[in-house]
């Protein structure tokens, strides 16, 4: 049992060392999704704000 655990640690360590050796940052998809989510949300909110302001400007012109 102990031997198996040890083998597991060794394999995991070798794989980690391989990744670190390549200089890679592993994972991080949550940061990627957050960045794209913020971008799309900002575009949607700003487009909506422009549309509402344009409509309000048109209404005030019509009123005038």
């Amino acid at each position: 049992m102990r031997l198996l655990e040890l083998a597991g640690y060794l394999l995991e360590g070798a794989s980690t060392a391989e990744r670190v050796g390549a200089g890679r940052i592993v994972g991080g998809w949550e940061y990627v999704y957050a960045a794209y989510g913020i971008t799309y949300a900002a575009i949607i909110v700003y487009t909506l704000s422009l549309w509402l302001r344009r409509r309000s400007a048109q209404q005030s012109e019509d009123f005038r």
């Binding site: 890679r24 940052i25 592993v26 940061y31």
Partner: peptide, 12 residues
Amino acid sequence: REMGDVQRIMYV
């Protein structure tokens, strides 16, 4: 090669 998948943030 260095930053892995987080580099994909660059495109936005």
